[in-house]
Design a protein around this nucleic acid. Structure first.
Length: 989
RNA sequence: GCCCCCAUAGCCCAACUGGUAGAGGCAGCCGGCUUAAACCCGGCGAAGUACGGGUUCGAAUCCCGUUGGGGGCACCA
């Protein structure tokens, strides 16, 4: 049996009275936490307004804004993995503060969301009560860790004052449209065109006739078209242009959750990220945000910010910009069934317009509007495999559409590769070959990407080839590699090469490389009015409404004509109504035919209101949707700058000071938060949405930074070992012992039986949860912090090992003993000058610790502190001049013990604002350096030499080394590589 | 299937970006303190860097391949 270290330590009440025990640590920590709070030690000073520094101090130093990703206060409380990032930012913040920066660091709560709502549903308690209770627990656990937060700036997304501004931002977005041709906002002349503008400006321009009316043909010069519209029609035109808009389109419907979801919330397996329920595609009228208008800027501006390449790549991928062409294929009205003979056109998107001559059929997504009308009978030449055995195209298409819509994304996923589809009866004309090609519908073409229709080139695309084989369709190769395709080549050739089989009377691509062929055909398409070069995105507009209770209500009402009207600022916030039941109407997870039903709709008195919105009291119906959980986290960083501000969401002067472009030495051209630390799991969702909102606010002139987060850092995860017995059941990890055999093999035991060790997540079911509370109790917060910071590099995941924590505790105990007598509690440091060796170790340590701290490598910084501390331990007396800098350098990681020692050393002020020690260059130069002498790369001698020895002297000394002479064995010297003063390498002839 | 990251003493991790494989911690062993043990103090051993090749005077570090682990994307036209 292992005895937990904690028990060993606490069960020795006999120890010296003033030893740094967990009990003493706890006493010190609680005391300093109270003092910090009373003194406002970590109050960050704004350059103006009520939020000043400690004792009313004005802002001084370089502004440094540091943040953790918003925690969600879950009911389970924290485990030891959660605070890792919080401690890391705290260490950085404390370090920067000691370097003289004006550090802004606080933490609020992302408090709307599903778990609280689900708990409320289960217990009947209002989610607010549940959430607030959880926040109390969270606050206590975080405070106990000694985090240097400015509590005045903390808030929760559910606070009515915060909701008010979240709704206000929504209304700014609602009140905007995207003018892709406008001069960019801001002052950077290189930025690409396009920005958000006010809807009223669009209205004015339409009325003045300076732009055409979207969706209405005709010449609007002088505003003629606009003038002919009714007021209702005008509002429809404007509403359709808004950045927050309602429309009906295929969305992700999750019956198991009873709500619709954004694409980003659906896993690649086609399930909900929360709850893992199946998700179906359904046409529903929902709120969306026009994030696609920002697709280019969201991609391009990644270059302006200091983020991990991995996250940038994930965002680029998600936005999925690709260049290609739109091509229009005329649909043939089959003369028998369509008297007019007039077809419509199908527009496709392709990245390979150069292969147009190989387009032998077309495929549209099952949801494509072309299928709303199909020919009554199969046209001539219809092959039997195309029809799926149906009598008519109408029957075939209807059946296929039904089948496809009933398929969950899961099933779609499972069927990927298998090609299913059916002929629609439509024929279209390939614009370069003039050939009639059949139009199929198949679910491998997605309505959400491009135009929802493709030209199929089986000769150049694997998927099209698979489909062509299944449906007996012709294959034409239009690209061949050097030396041509092999005889009898079958399949798709998607590689490099030159165009073949690509000529008609007016155009020839033959012999051109892919890039030239693309350019040529795009020019031809434009000239002939059948297409043009274009860019398309994988990103879709952000589905923004949810049919849940616990979220921000939409600040919108619907008038008698069912058009949306914004609630005026003066009536914000729109509070959540009381409802008889918080639960959304949920359904059998696979009930495709269910429809969303919002809980807010259950309070009729709330929904149906009479309001005076400027033209007298009228009846309105409130919007019963709530915003997604992401809304609150889209802009919280701005509110940290002053959550008490009742005039602005954020004061522009404060935003400029803390976040503006180049607001300090390390801030980039886009500005933003100086350091944002969080897990990589938000790489796409939160970080993309927040960037989007920020850019809208930037365009509208509310913020001066064009990006919210100038630097992003992903911390790794703390994982843990879990152990299973012979039956595969988990056993309590803390009760497992290990034995190492002489051969180095380690075996693990639980209650005498061998168990199997696995590595992974921390979780209740894995029986390996350790809570921070356990650590505070058994070791104290400083030891816990120190251990978490010394485990390894911050960006790497590593295993928790309670057994190892004692090492961190010993360091602090030794530090304590270097200052304080364990027997008497007296300070024992001497005022004697440190000896030369101590000074060298001290200044070397200072220099190294600074470097490591600046590089966010607390693990190596701590190692160096331990080295210095161990050196001091070996001295007869510990000089004050050596231990005081050590205490200061330890403070960012173990702040409570450092404050206590600092005070014992006679200082009356907190060390939080004390300057971080600076190394004296004079002590950084070693007296001698060990020089390694290699012969043919192998170490053959070592010499103690002066650090500034010349290359010539060093080489001469090396060649004279007896061992070198012996290994050269009379052979001549071919070459000598000298890297003074540390290395000489001699290459024998 | 495609892309990215990682692999160093029994364990967690360092190694100035090509220059003595070891900073620190855990565990282990020896000694001191102790009536004894724990704590504490002092000391010690241990890997040649997953594997195979290559470049170089010199490779943990760069290149190629293999194995193992982690992550992202996945009918995106």
């Amino acid at each position: 049996m292992t005895t937990p270290a904690a028990e060993r330590t606490t069960s020795t009440p006999e120890g010296p009275r003033y030893r740094y025990t967990p009990a003493l640590a706890q006493e010190i920590e609680l005391r300093w936490q109270d003092r910090w709070e009373e003194r406002g030690t970590f109050h960050a000073a704004n350059p103006s307004g009520a939020l000043t520094g400690p004792d009313g101090a004005n802002a001084s130093g370089s502004p440094y804004f540091i943040m953790d990703m918003f925690p969600y206060p879950s009911g389970a409380g924290l485990h030891v993995g959660h605070p890792l990032g919080f401690i890391a930012t705290d260490v950085v913040g404390r370090f920067r503060r000691m370097c003289g920066d004006n550090v802004l660091h606080t933490m609020g709560f992302d408090a709307f969301g599903l778990p609280a709502e689900q708990y409320a549903v289960a217990t009947g308690e209002h989610p607010r009560g549940v959430t607030e209770r959880n926040m109390v627990t969270y606050r206590r656990q975080l405070r106990r860790a000694g985090l240097a937060h400015d509590q005045r700036r903390s808030f929760a997304t559910i606070d009515p004052e915060y909701v008010r501004w979240t709704q206000w931002i929504f209304l700014q977005i609602f009140d905007s449209w995207y003018d892709a041709d406008a001069e960019p906002a801001g002052t950077d002349p290189d930025r690409r065109r396009g920005r958000a503008r006010r809807i009223s400006e669009l209205r004015d321009e339409l009325a003045a006739g300076t732009r055409p009316v979207p969706g209405h043909d005709g010449d609007n010069t002088g505003g003629a078209v606009w003038a002919a519209l009714s007021e209702g029609e005008r509002r429809d035109v404007l509403d359709a242009q808004r950045l927050a808009y309602v429309d009906s389109s295929p969305v992700n419907w999750c019956p198991g959750l009873g709500t619709v979801l954004a694409n980003e919330e659906v896993t690649s397996e086609g399930r909900s990220e929360r709850g893992n329920f199946p998700v179906f595609t359904k046409n529903l009228r929902q709120w969306k945000m026009r994030i696609t208008a920002y697709a280019d800027r969201l991609t391009d501006d990644l270059e302006l910010i200091d983020w991990p390449d991995k996250v940038k790549a994930m965002q680029r991928n998600w936005i999925g910009r690709s260049h290609g062409a739109h091509v229009r294929f005329d649909v043939v009205g089959t003369s028998d069934n369509d008297a007019a003979g007039a077809g419509e056109a199908i527009e496709v998107f392709t990245t390979r317009p150069d292969t147009l001559f190989g387009a032998t059929f077309m495929v549209v997504a099952p949801e494509h509007p072309l299928l709303d009308e199909v020919p009554a009978a199969w046209p001539d030449g219809t092959k039997s495999v195309w029809t799926g055995g149906h009598e008519s195209p109408a029957a075939a298409v209807a059946a296929y559409r039904r089948e496809a819509s009933g398929k969950s994304a899961v099933e779609r996923q499972a069927d990927a590769g298998k090609k299913t589809g059916v002929f629609t009866g439509h024929l279209a004309v390939n614009p370069v070959t003039g050939t009639h090609v059949p139009v199929f519908t198949a679910d491998y073409v997605l309505m959400g990407y491009g135009t929802g229709a493709i030209m199929a080139v089986p000769g150049g695309d694997e998927r099209d080839y698979d489909f062509a084989r299944a449906y007996d369709l012709p294959v034409v190769h239009t690209v061949a590699p050097d030396g041509g395709l092999p005889d009898g080549f079958e399949g798709a050739y998607a590689g490099e090469g030159v165009a073949i089989n690509s000529s008609n009377d007016a155009l020839s691509l033959d012999g051109l490389g892919v890039d030239e062929a693309k350019a040529r055909i795009i020019a031809w398409l434009s000239e002939n009015g059948v297409g043009q070069g274009t860019t398309t995105y994988r990103l879709n507009d952000w589905l923004f409404s949810r049919q849940r209770y616990w979220g921000e209500p939409f600040p919108v009402v619907w008038d008698e004509d069912d058009r949306p009207v914004a609630i005026p600022d003066s009536m914000l916030p729109v509070d959540l109504p009381d409802v008889p039941d918080y639960a959304p109407r949920t359904f059998e997870p696979d009930d495709v035919h269910s429809e969303p039903e919002a809980p807010l709709g259950r309070n009729e008195d709330w929904v149906n209101v009479t309001l005076d919105l400027g033209d007298g009291p009228r009846r309105y119906r409130r919007d019963t949707n709530t915003m997604p959980n992401w809304a609150g986290s889209c802009w919280y960083y701005l509110r940290y700058l002053d959550p008490t501000d009742t005039e602005h969401a954020v004061d522009p002067a404060l935003e400029k000071y803390w976040m503006g472009p180049r607001h300090n030495a390390t801030s980039g051209p886009a500005g933003g938060v100086d350091l944002y630390v969080g897990g990589v799991e938000h790489a796409v969702l939160h970080l993309l949405y927040a960037r989007f909102w920020h850019k809208v606010l930037f365009d509208l002139g509310y913020v001066s930074s064009s990006e919210p987060f100038g630097r992003l850092f992903n911390q790794g995860y703390i994982q843990a070992y879990a152990y299973t017995d012979s039956r595969g059941a988990y056993v309590p990890a803390e009760e497992v012992t290990e034995e190492t055999a002489p051969d180095g093999q380690t075996t693990y035991f639980w209650q005498g039986q061998p168990v199997n060790r696995e590595y992974g997540k921390i979780g209740k079911s894995l029986k390996n949860v350790v809570s921070p509370d356990d650590m505070y109790e058994a070791y104290g917060a400083d030891t816990f912090r120190l251990y978490e910071m010394s485990m390894g590099p911050l960006d790497q995941s590593r295993p928790w090992n309670t057994r190892d924590v004692v090492g961190s505790q010993r360091f602090l105990q030794r530090l304590w003993r270097n200052v304080v007598s364990e027997e008497t509690g007296e300070v024992t440091v001497t005022d004697d000058a440190p000896d030369a060796a101590t000074l060298r170790v001290l200044h070397r340590t200072i220099a190294d610790v600074r470097t490591e701290m600046e590089g966010m490598r607390p693990n190596t910084a701590i190692a160096k502190l331990i080295t210095l501390n161990n050196h001091l331990t070996g001295l007869d007396g510990v000089p004050r001049a050596a231990v005081e800098p050590l205490v200061l350098m330890t403070a960012p990681v173990a702040p409570h013990i450092a404050e206590e020692l600092w005070e014992k050393l006679g200082h009356t002020e907190s060390l939080a604002h004390e300057p971080f020690p600076e190394a004296d260059e004079a002590y950084l130069v070693a007296e001698t350096v060990t020089c390694v002498v290699q012969v043919k790369g192998k170490v053959r001698a070592k010499m103690e030499v002066a650090p500034d020895i010349s290359e010539e002297d060093l080489q001469a000394a090396a060649l004279a080394e007896p061992n070198v002479v012996r290994f050269l064995d009379g052979a001549g010297v071919r070459k000598v590589i000298v890297r003074a003063p540390k290395l000489v390498n001699i290459v024998p002839a």
